[in-house]
Nucleic acid binder design. Structure first.
Lengths: 222, 222
DNA sequence: ACTTCTTATTACCCTTGGGTAAGATACGGC
DNA sequence: GCCGTATCTTACCCAAGGGTAATAAGAAGT
Protein backbone atom coordinates (compact mmCIF):
# COMPACT_ATOMS: atom_id res chain seq x y z
CA UNK A 1 0.00 0.00 0.00
CA UNK A 2 0.97 3.59 -0.37
CA UNK A 3 3.08 3.08 -3.47
CA UNK A 4 3.51 6.79 -4.09
CA UNK A 5 6.56 7.94 -5.97
CA UNK A 6 9.35 10.09 -4.69
CA UNK A 7 8.18 12.53 -2.05
CA UNK A 8 7.43 16.12 -2.90
CA UNK A 9 11.02 17.06 -2.22
CA UNK A 10 13.33 15.11 -4.50
CA UNK A 11 14.93 12.58 -2.22
CA UNK A 12 16.96 9.58 -3.34
CA UNK A 13 15.21 7.58 -0.61
CA UNK A 14 11.84 6.23 -1.56
CA UNK A 15 9.56 5.60 1.40
CA UNK A 16 10.23 1.89 1.41
CA UNK A 17 11.57 0.86 -1.95
CA UNK A 18 14.79 0.67 -3.81
CA UNK A 19 17.16 2.89 -1.92
CA UNK A 20 20.38 1.97 -3.58
CA UNK A 21 21.74 5.08 -5.20
CA UNK A 22 25.35 6.04 -5.17
CA UNK A 23 26.76 7.09 -1.85
CA UNK A 24 27.90 10.52 -2.94
CA UNK A 25 24.54 11.32 -4.34
CA UNK A 26 22.94 10.59 -1.00
CA UNK A 27 25.52 12.53 0.91
CA UNK A 28 24.84 15.48 -1.31
CA UNK A 29 21.12 15.12 -0.79
CA UNK A 30 21.62 15.18 2.96
CA UNK A 31 23.63 18.34 2.60
CA UNK A 32 21.08 20.03 0.36
CA UNK A 33 18.25 19.21 2.71
CA UNK A 34 20.24 20.22 5.75
CA UNK A 35 21.35 23.58 4.44
CA UNK A 36 17.83 24.32 3.36
CA UNK A 37 16.45 23.54 6.79
CA UNK A 38 19.25 25.38 8.55
CA UNK A 39 18.48 28.49 6.55
CA UNK A 40 14.78 28.06 7.09
CA UNK A 41 14.89 27.63 10.84
CA UNK A 42 18.36 28.60 11.94
CA UNK A 43 21.16 26.16 12.67
CA UNK A 44 20.58 25.78 16.39
CA UNK A 45 16.84 25.36 16.09
CA UNK A 46 16.92 22.95 13.17
CA UNK A 47 17.15 19.34 14.33
CA UNK A 48 18.78 16.39 12.66
CA UNK A 49 15.56 14.53 13.28
CA UNK A 50 13.76 16.85 10.94
CA UNK A 51 16.53 16.71 8.35
CA UNK A 52 16.21 12.95 8.38
CA UNK A 53 12.43 13.09 8.29
CA UNK A 54 12.49 15.20 5.15
CA UNK A 55 14.65 12.55 3.53
CA UNK A 56 12.38 9.70 4.58
CA UNK A 57 15.02 8.23 6.86
CA UNK A 58 15.86 8.37 10.54
CA UNK A 59 18.47 10.38 12.36
CA UNK A 60 21.09 7.68 12.91
CA UNK A 61 21.15 7.02 9.19
CA UNK A 62 22.62 10.47 8.71
CA UNK A 63 25.66 9.36 10.65
CA UNK A 64 26.62 7.13 7.76
CA UNK A 65 27.48 10.27 5.85
CA UNK A 66 28.50 12.79 8.48
CA UNK A 67 30.21 12.47 11.80
CA UNK A 68 28.30 15.29 13.45
CA UNK A 69 25.90 18.15 12.94
CA UNK A 70 28.83 20.48 13.06
CA UNK A 71 30.47 18.68 10.16
CA UNK A 72 27.39 19.30 8.06
CA UNK A 73 27.51 22.96 8.98
CA UNK A 74 31.16 23.15 8.07
CA UNK A 75 30.53 21.62 4.66
CA UNK A 76 27.88 24.23 3.98
CA UNK A 77 30.45 26.89 4.64
CA UNK A 78 33.04 25.04 2.59
CA UNK A 79 30.78 24.75 -0.44
CA UNK A 80 29.90 28.42 -0.24
CA UNK A 81 33.54 29.38 0.02
CA UNK A 82 34.31 27.18 -2.93
CA UNK A 83 31.85 29.07 -5.10
CA UNK A 84 33.31 32.39 -4.09
CA UNK A 85 36.82 31.15 -4.71
CA UNK A 86 35.82 30.12 -8.20
CA UNK A 87 34.50 33.59 -8.86
CA UNK A 88 37.69 35.17 -7.61
CA UNK A 89 39.90 32.78 -9.55
CA UNK A 90 38.04 33.52 -12.76
CA UNK A 91 38.43 37.24 -12.30
CA UNK A 92 42.09 36.94 -11.52
CA UNK A 93 42.55 34.85 -14.65
CA UNK A 94 41.16 37.66 -16.79
CA UNK A 95 42.40 41.21 -16.98
CA UNK A 96 40.87 44.64 -16.65
CA UNK A 97 41.06 47.65 -14.44
CA UNK A 98 40.60 47.58 -10.69
CA UNK A 99 37.12 48.97 -11.16
CA UNK A 100 36.29 46.35 -13.75
CA UNK A 101 37.48 43.55 -11.51
CA UNK A 102 35.57 44.99 -8.58
CA UNK A 103 32.37 45.05 -10.62
CA UNK A 104 32.88 41.47 -11.65
CA UNK A 105 33.47 40.49 -8.06
CA UNK A 106 30.31 42.24 -6.94
CA UNK A 107 28.26 40.55 -9.61
CA UNK A 108 29.75 37.15 -8.87
CA UNK A 109 29.61 37.43 -5.13
CA UNK A 110 26.03 38.67 -5.27
CA UNK A 111 25.18 35.65 -7.37
CA UNK A 112 26.69 33.31 -4.83
CA UNK A 113 24.84 35.03 -1.99
CA UNK A 114 21.58 34.13 -3.66
CA UNK A 115 22.29 30.41 -3.42
CA UNK A 116 21.82 28.28 -0.33
CA UNK A 117 25.48 27.50 0.18
CA UNK A 118 26.42 31.08 -0.48
CA UNK A 119 23.94 32.38 2.07
CA UNK A 120 25.49 29.94 4.54
CA UNK A 121 28.53 32.19 4.65
CA UNK A 122 26.59 35.01 6.23
CA UNK A 123 23.56 33.40 7.84
CA UNK A 124 25.34 30.90 10.02
CA UNK A 125 27.49 31.58 13.02
CA UNK A 126 31.11 30.47 12.99
CA UNK A 127 30.88 30.08 16.76
CA UNK A 128 28.90 26.91 16.11
CA UNK A 129 31.99 25.38 14.52
CA UNK A 130 34.83 23.67 16.30
CA UNK A 131 37.83 25.86 16.91
CA UNK A 132 39.68 24.20 14.11
CA UNK A 133 36.95 24.66 11.53
CA UNK A 134 36.13 28.11 12.76
CA UNK A 135 39.68 29.18 12.06
CA UNK A 136 39.49 27.81 8.55
CA UNK A 137 36.27 29.61 7.75
CA UNK A 138 37.39 32.89 9.24
CA UNK A 139 40.61 32.71 7.27
CA UNK A 140 38.63 32.19 4.08
CA UNK A 141 36.36 35.12 4.92
CA UNK A 142 39.37 37.27 5.57
CA UNK A 143 40.62 36.29 2.17
CA UNK A 144 37.41 37.47 0.54
CA UNK A 145 37.63 40.76 2.34
CA UNK A 146 41.21 41.15 1.24
CA UNK A 147 40.21 40.55 -2.35
CA UNK A 148 37.67 43.35 -2.20
CA UNK A 149 40.25 45.69 -0.74
CA UNK A 150 42.90 44.70 -3.23
CA UNK A 151 40.68 45.34 -6.22
CA UNK A 152 39.79 48.74 -4.81
CA UNK A 153 43.42 49.58 -4.15
CA UNK A 154 44.26 48.38 -7.62
CA UNK A 155 41.58 50.61 -9.03
CA UNK A 156 42.91 53.59 -7.18
CA UNK A 157 46.38 52.81 -8.46
CA UNK A 158 45.25 52.58 -12.08
CA UNK A 159 42.96 55.60 -11.69
CA UNK A 160 39.78 53.74 -12.49
CA UNK A 161 38.61 54.35 -8.93
CA UNK A 162 38.61 57.68 -7.18
CA UNK A 163 40.85 57.71 -4.08
CA UNK A 164 39.10 56.62 -0.90
CA UNK A 165 39.55 54.53 2.22
CA UNK A 166 39.77 51.05 0.73
CA UNK A 167 38.98 49.36 4.03
CA UNK A 168 35.74 51.19 4.67
CA UNK A 169 34.71 51.04 1.04
CA UNK A 170 35.19 47.29 1.09
CA UNK A 171 33.13 47.01 4.25
CA UNK A 172 30.35 49.07 2.75
CA UNK A 173 30.22 47.01 -0.43
CA UNK A 174 30.61 43.62 1.20
CA UNK A 175 27.97 44.56 3.75
CA UNK A 176 25.46 45.34 1.06
CA UNK A 177 26.19 42.07 -0.65
CA UNK A 178 26.20 39.98 2.49
CA UNK A 179 22.82 41.34 3.38
CA UNK A 180 21.45 39.90 0.17
CA UNK A 181 21.83 36.52 1.81
CA UNK A 182 19.32 37.64 4.41
CA UNK A 183 16.53 39.00 2.29
CA UNK A 184 16.72 37.40 -1.13
CA UNK A 185 14.37 34.55 -1.81
CA UNK A 186 14.49 32.66 -5.05
CA UNK A 187 10.72 32.60 -5.38
CA UNK A 188 10.41 36.33 -4.88
CA UNK A 189 9.69 39.07 -7.35
CA UNK A 190 13.28 39.78 -8.33
CA UNK A 191 15.55 37.62 -10.43
CA UNK A 192 19.10 36.91 -9.36
CA UNK A 193 20.55 38.47 -12.49
CA UNK A 194 18.63 41.67 -11.97
CA UNK A 195 19.84 42.01 -8.42
CA UNK A 196 23.45 41.17 -9.23
CA UNK A 197 23.60 43.67 -12.07
CA UNK A 198 21.86 46.41 -10.19
CA UNK A 199 24.22 46.05 -7.25
CA UNK A 200 27.28 45.97 -9.51
CA UNK A 201 26.20 49.31 -10.91
CA UNK A 202 24.86 50.96 -7.80
CA UNK A 203 27.72 50.05 -5.48
CA UNK A 204 30.39 51.31 -7.82
CA UNK A 205 28.72 54.51 -8.98
CA UNK A 206 30.20 56.38 -6.10
CA UNK A 207 33.66 54.97 -6.58
CA UNK A 208 34.14 55.27 -10.30
CA UNK A 209 36.50 58.01 -11.31
CA UNK A 210 34.34 60.38 -13.32
CA UNK A 211 35.36 60.95 -16.90
CA UNK A 212 33.88 64.44 -16.71
CA UNK A 213 37.22 65.75 -17.78
CA UNK A 214 38.34 63.63 -20.70
CA UNK A 215 41.76 62.18 -20.22
CA UNK A 216 44.10 60.56 -22.62
CA UNK A 217 42.97 57.07 -21.58
CA UNK A 218 39.42 56.85 -20.31
CA UNK A 219 38.83 54.17 -17.70
CA UNK A 220 38.23 50.84 -19.25
CA UNK A 221 34.92 49.25 -18.55
CA UNK A 222 33.94 45.65 -17.99
CA UNK B 1 38.07 39.00 53.42
CA UNK B 2 37.89 39.89 49.77
CA UNK B 3 36.31 43.27 50.30
CA UNK B 4 36.80 44.28 46.69
CA UNK B 5 34.44 46.79 45.19
CA UNK B 6 32.03 46.23 42.35
CA UNK B 7 33.17 43.48 40.01
CA UNK B 8 35.02 44.31 36.81
CA UNK B 9 31.73 44.74 34.99
CA UNK B 10 29.66 47.32 36.81
CA UNK B 11 27.01 45.34 38.59
CA UNK B 12 24.66 46.77 41.19
CA UNK B 13 25.03 43.52 43.12
CA UNK B 14 28.03 43.37 45.36
CA UNK B 15 29.25 39.84 46.05
CA UNK B 16 27.56 39.67 49.39
CA UNK B 17 26.96 43.13 50.63
CA UNK B 18 24.43 45.88 50.42
CA UNK B 19 22.25 44.98 47.50
CA UNK B 20 19.46 47.44 47.85
CA UNK B 21 19.43 49.55 44.73
CA UNK B 22 16.36 50.60 42.94
CA UNK B 23 14.52 47.91 41.07
CA UNK B 24 14.65 49.60 37.68
CA UNK B 25 18.35 50.05 37.95
CA UNK B 26 18.79 46.35 38.50
CA UNK B 27 16.46 45.44 35.72
CA UNK B 28 18.46 47.61 33.41
CA UNK B 29 21.70 46.04 34.58
CA UNK B 30 20.32 42.61 33.80
CA UNK B 31 19.43 43.80 30.35
CA UNK B 32 22.81 45.35 29.71
CA UNK B 33 24.64 42.26 30.80
CA UNK B 34 22.33 39.99 28.86
CA UNK B 35 22.54 41.85 25.58
CA UNK B 36 26.30 41.96 25.92
CA UNK B 37 26.50 38.24 26.46
CA UNK B 38 23.99 37.50 23.72
CA UNK B 39 26.07 39.48 21.27
CA UNK B 40 29.25 37.87 22.48
CA UNK B 41 28.10 34.28 22.28
CA UNK B 42 24.88 34.30 20.32
CA UNK B 43 21.42 34.17 21.86
CA UNK B 44 20.94 30.41 21.77
CA UNK B 45 24.36 29.63 23.13
CA UNK B 46 24.33 32.22 25.89
CA UNK B 47 22.82 30.85 29.08
CA UNK B 48 20.91 32.63 31.78
CA UNK B 49 23.21 30.97 34.26
CA UNK B 50 26.11 32.91 32.83
CA UNK B 51 24.15 36.15 32.71
CA UNK B 52 23.39 35.70 36.37
CA UNK B 53 26.94 34.74 37.17
CA UNK B 54 28.26 37.93 35.65
CA UNK B 55 25.93 39.87 37.92
CA UNK B 56 26.99 37.98 41.02
CA UNK B 57 23.57 36.42 41.42
CA UNK B 58 21.94 33.13 40.48
CA UNK B 59 19.59 32.30 37.65
CA UNK B 60 16.28 32.26 39.51
CA UNK B 61 16.95 35.80 40.73
CA UNK B 62 16.66 36.97 37.14
CA UNK B 63 13.07 35.87 37.16
CA UNK B 64 12.28 38.71 39.52
CA UNK B 65 12.82 41.05 36.62
CA UNK B 66 11.90 39.06 33.54
CA UNK B 67 9.40 36.35 32.88
CA UNK B 68 11.55 34.47 30.39
CA UNK B 69 14.70 34.54 28.35
CA UNK B 70 12.60 35.45 25.36
CA UNK B 71 11.29 38.53 27.13
CA UNK B 72 14.86 39.72 27.63
CA UNK B 73 15.54 39.20 23.97
CA UNK B 74 12.44 41.12 23.01
CA UNK B 75 13.43 44.06 25.19
CA UNK B 76 16.80 44.20 23.46
CA UNK B 77 14.99 44.52 20.16
CA UNK B 78 12.58 47.05 21.62
CA UNK B 79 15.35 49.29 22.93
CA UNK B 80 17.16 49.16 19.61
CA UNK B 81 13.98 50.03 17.75
CA UNK B 82 13.38 52.88 20.15
CA UNK B 83 16.74 54.39 19.32
CA UNK B 84 16.07 54.15 15.60
CA UNK B 85 12.61 55.62 16.00
CA UNK B 86 14.12 58.58 17.79
CA UNK B 87 16.50 59.15 14.91
CA UNK B 88 13.66 58.99 12.41
CA UNK B 89 11.43 61.27 14.45
CA UNK B 90 14.16 63.85 14.74
CA UNK B 91 14.74 63.85 11.01
CA UNK B 92 11.06 64.13 10.26
CA UNK B 93 10.82 67.05 12.65
CA UNK B 94 13.43 68.94 10.68
CA UNK B 95 13.35 69.80 7.00
CA UNK B 96 15.64 69.37 4.04
CA UNK B 97 15.75 67.58 0.74
CA UNK B 98 15.23 63.86 0.33
CA UNK B 99 18.95 63.43 -0.07
CA UNK B 100 19.63 65.44 3.06
CA UNK B 101 17.20 63.37 5.08
CA UNK B 102 18.64 60.18 3.71
CA UNK B 103 22.13 61.23 4.76
CA UNK B 104 20.90 62.04 8.24
CA UNK B 105 19.18 58.70 8.44
CA UNK B 106 22.32 56.89 7.36
CA UNK B 107 24.41 58.70 9.92
CA UNK B 108 21.90 58.14 12.69
CA UNK B 109 21.18 54.54 11.84
CA UNK B 110 24.88 53.78 11.57
CA UNK B 111 25.33 55.28 15.00
CA UNK B 112 22.63 53.07 16.46
CA UNK B 113 24.14 50.00 14.82
CA UNK B 114 27.32 50.58 16.74
CA UNK B 115 25.56 50.23 20.10
CA UNK B 116 24.64 46.95 21.75
CA UNK B 117 20.89 47.43 21.50
CA UNK B 118 21.19 48.64 17.95
CA UNK B 119 23.21 45.62 16.93
CA UNK B 120 20.49 43.49 18.46
CA UNK B 121 18.27 44.44 15.55
CA UNK B 122 20.47 42.63 13.09
CA UNK B 123 22.42 40.09 15.12
CA UNK B 124 19.53 38.28 16.70
CA UNK B 125 16.97 36.08 15.06
CA UNK B 126 13.32 37.03 15.23
CA UNK B 127 12.49 33.33 15.07
CA UNK B 128 13.59 33.12 18.69
CA UNK B 129 10.69 35.37 19.65
CA UNK B 130 7.13 34.33 20.30
CA UNK B 131 4.81 34.79 17.37
CA UNK B 132 3.33 37.85 18.94
CA UNK B 133 6.64 39.58 19.60
CA UNK B 134 8.07 38.46 16.31
CA UNK B 135 5.25 40.23 14.50
CA UNK B 136 5.90 43.42 16.43
CA UNK B 137 9.59 43.42 15.62
CA UNK B 138 9.10 42.59 11.99
CA UNK B 139 6.57 45.37 11.66
CA UNK B 140 9.04 47.82 13.15
CA UNK B 141 11.76 46.63 10.79
CA UNK B 142 9.43 47.04 7.89
CA UNK B 143 8.83 50.57 9.05
CA UNK B 144 12.55 51.32 8.99
CA UNK B 145 12.82 49.94 5.50
CA UNK B 146 9.88 52.05 4.40
CA UNK B 147 11.53 55.14 5.80
CA UNK B 148 14.63 54.53 3.73
CA UNK B 149 12.54 54.06 0.62
CA UNK B 150 10.42 57.10 1.31
CA UNK B 151 13.40 59.37 1.72
CA UNK B 152 14.84 58.09 -1.52
CA UNK B 153 11.55 58.54 -3.33
CA UNK B 154 11.29 62.00 -1.83
CA UNK B 155 14.76 62.78 -3.06
CA UNK B 156 13.90 61.66 -6.55
CA UNK B 157 10.78 63.79 -6.46
CA UNK B 158 12.65 66.88 -5.38
CA UNK B 159 15.53 66.15 -7.77
CA UNK B 160 18.13 65.85 -5.06
CA UNK B 161 18.54 62.17 -5.91
CA UNK B 162 19.06 60.79 -9.36
CA UNK B 163 16.23 58.47 -10.45
CA UNK B 164 16.73 54.85 -9.50
CA UNK B 165 14.94 51.82 -8.13
CA UNK B 166 14.14 52.98 -4.59
CA UNK B 167 13.57 49.46 -3.34
CA UNK B 168 16.93 48.09 -4.40
CA UNK B 169 18.75 51.25 -3.41
CA UNK B 170 17.24 51.03 0.05
CA UNK B 171 18.27 47.39 0.33
CA UNK B 172 21.81 48.22 -0.71
CA UNK B 173 22.13 51.05 1.78
CA UNK B 174 20.43 49.32 4.67
CA UNK B 175 22.50 46.20 4.01
CA UNK B 176 25.71 48.14 4.32
CA UNK B 177 24.54 49.70 7.54
CA UNK B 178 23.16 46.52 9.04
CA UNK B 179 26.46 44.84 8.44
CA UNK B 180 28.13 47.39 10.65
CA UNK B 181 26.42 45.63 13.53
CA UNK B 182 28.40 42.55 12.66
CA UNK B 183 31.91 43.90 12.40
CA UNK B 184 32.13 47.08 14.42
CA UNK B 185 33.70 46.85 17.84
CA UNK B 186 33.87 49.80 20.12
CA UNK B 187 37.41 49.04 21.16
CA UNK B 188 38.62 48.81 17.59
CA UNK B 189 40.68 51.22 15.57
CA UNK B 190 37.77 53.21 14.14
CA UNK B 191 35.59 55.66 15.99
CA UNK B 192 31.82 55.58 15.64
CA UNK B 193 31.67 59.12 14.27
CA UNK B 194 34.24 58.36 11.62
CA UNK B 195 32.33 55.33 10.42
CA UNK B 196 28.95 57.05 10.45
CA UNK B 197 30.21 60.02 8.48
CA UNK B 198 32.15 57.97 6.01
CA UNK B 199 29.11 55.81 5.29
CA UNK B 200 26.82 58.81 4.97
CA UNK B 201 29.09 60.13 2.25
CA UNK B 202 30.03 56.93 0.53
CA UNK B 203 26.55 55.44 0.30
CA UNK B 204 25.02 58.54 -1.20
CA UNK B 205 27.76 59.46 -3.66
CA UNK B 206 26.20 57.29 -6.26
CA UNK B 207 22.71 58.59 -5.67
CA UNK B 208 23.27 62.31 -5.49
CA UNK B 209 22.00 64.08 -8.55
CA UNK B 210 25.04 65.64 -10.15
CA UNK B 211 24.72 69.29 -10.85
CA UNK B 212 27.11 68.79 -13.77
CA UNK B 213 24.42 69.30 -16.37
CA UNK B 214 21.39 71.15 -15.18
CA UNK B 215 18.33 69.78 -16.84
CA UNK B 216 14.73 70.75 -16.67
CA UNK B 217 13.63 67.17 -16.14
CA UNK B 218 16.25 64.55 -15.38
CA UNK B 219 16.05 61.25 -17.28
CA UNK B 220 13.61 58.82 -15.83
CA UNK B 221 14.90 55.41 -14.87
CA UNK B 222 13.30 52.11 -13.92
C1' DA C 1 10.13 42.78 68.40
C1' DC C 2 6.66 40.88 65.09
C1' DT C 3 4.80 40.60 60.68
C1' DT C 4 5.04 41.26 55.73
C1' DC C 5 6.95 42.08 51.33
C1' DT C 6 10.68 41.71 48.34
C1' DT C 7 14.53 39.48 46.75
C1' DA C 8 17.57 36.05 46.56
C1' DT C 9 19.14 31.02 47.29
C1' DT C 10 19.29 25.92 46.97
C1' DA C 11 17.50 22.08 44.96
C1' DC C 12 14.98 20.27 41.57
C1' DC C 13 12.06 19.11 37.23
C1' DC C 14 11.76 18.02 32.53
C1' DT C 15 12.02 18.72 27.71
C1' DT C 16 15.04 18.84 23.84
C1' DG C 17 18.18 17.04 20.88
C1' DG C 18 22.95 15.37 19.60
C1' DG C 19 24.97 11.19 19.61
C1' DT C 20 25.54 5.84 20.32
C1' DA C 21 24.67 0.62 20.68
C1' DA C 22 22.85 -3.31 18.98
C1' DG C 23 20.31 -5.60 15.92
C1' DA C 24 17.66 -6.01 11.23
C1' DT C 25 17.68 -5.82 6.11
C1' DA C 26 19.35 -5.62 1.67
C1' DC C 27 23.21 -6.16 -1.71
C1' DG C 28 27.39 -8.11 -3.90
C1' DG C 29 30.71 -11.64 -4.55
C1' DC C 30 31.62 -16.40 -4.32
C1' DG D 1 22.39 -20.49 -1.43
C1' DC D 2 25.69 -18.21 1.94
C1' DC D 3 28.55 -14.86 4.05
C1' DG D 4 30.55 -10.24 4.61
C1' DT D 5 29.78 -5.48 4.18
C1' DA D 6 27.21 -1.32 4.01
C1' DT D 7 23.15 0.80 5.34
C1' DC D 8 19.21 1.73 8.12
C1' DT D 9 16.06 1.03 12.19
C1' DT D 10 14.54 0.85 17.00
C1' DA D 11 15.71 1.94 21.45
C1' DC D 12 18.35 4.27 24.35
C1' DC D 13 21.84 7.55 26.83
C1' DC D 14 22.95 11.85 28.68
C1' DA D 15 24.26 16.72 29.04
C1' DA D 16 22.47 21.21 28.76
C1' DG D 17 19.63 24.60 30.05
C1' DG D 18 15.04 27.06 30.66
C1' DG D 19 12.01 27.32 34.16
C1' DT D 20 9.74 26.30 39.02
C1' DA D 21 9.00 25.24 44.16
C1' DA D 22 10.16 25.91 48.58
C1' DT D 23 12.53 28.51 51.54
C1' DA D 24 15.85 31.81 53.79
C1' DA D 25 17.24 36.46 54.72
C1' DG D 26 17.34 41.29 54.83
C1' DA D 27 14.23 45.80 54.73
C1' DA D 28 10.41 48.30 56.25
C1' DG D 29 6.38 49.46 58.52
C1' DT D 30 3.98 49.52 63.00
Amino acid sequence: MDARGPSSDSSPWMPFESRRRARDEKREAVLRTAVHLFLEQGYRRATLNEVAERLNITKPALYNYFRSKEEILFECYALGQERVDEVIAEINAGGGTGLGKLRKLIRGYAGVMMTDYGASLVRFDTRDLTDRNSKIVRAAKKNIDRTFRNFIAEGIADSSITPCDAKLAAFAIAGSLNWIGHWFQRDGAMSAELVANEFAVRLTEGLAARPTRMRASPPRES
